[in-house]
Amino acid sequence: MSVSKRPKLTDEDLVRQTLSGNEDGFAGLVDRYRDKIYNLAYRMLGNREEAEDVAQETFMHTFRALESFRLGERFSPWIYKIASNLCLDRLRKQRQPVSSLDEPIGPDQDIPQQVADWSHAPDQLYEVKEMRADTQDAISTLPPKYKVVVILRHLQDLSYDEIADVLNIPQGTVKTRLFRAREILRRKLARVYEGGMTVKEGVSR
């Protein structure tokens, strides 16, 4: 006879515990999702303070809304939806000019006007760190609705289906936005890697 390990609690178990008044349940959910939500918010907002704020808000909202969570459905898209909406709200409030970016991508019409300020970045960084900074910088210049799709796909590893669920948009729209976003990033990063210049300089061309 084999000795079986105690099975790991599922998200749903933790939700049930929380709803029945057991505080360990919610602590378990926070433990499980804290870093994921924080990274999602950081990639969306590009700022650690704001990411902390949004991650806290996400869990507060989650706690308040938990009774409306339909048991049997997957928890992760549900909490990502709360976090994504909070991030998109913030970005909307920053009133960035993004409307023209709905147009199809034509030659050189793919570059948003808003460019992250990284004048404060230290001059001397290791190559890998620079690459990471370039990646984050390139992400930060994407229009919010493209940015969120790229982040959910490649940093949170969600499928087209799950992203459609989180954002409440058709799967076809997910693909269109993802493909456009990657095309924008490809062009930016290709300039960075090959030209040995920064994203900012690339954009000003």
């Binding site: 924080y38 869990f59 507060m60 706690f63 990646t135 992400i139 940093l155 490809r186």
Partner: peptide
């Protein structure tokens, strides 16, 4: 090749962690 490299760069993005007192602050707020 460039698209694949872009995806790679995205997926290799460093994971960050929130401040150490994140959970304590959250618990306090709740």
């Amino acid at each position: 090749i460039e698209l694949a490299r872009t995806v790679n760069a995205l997926e290799e993005a460093e994971d960050l962690t929130p401040r150490q007192d994140f959970t304590v602050r959250l618990r306090e707020r709740l």
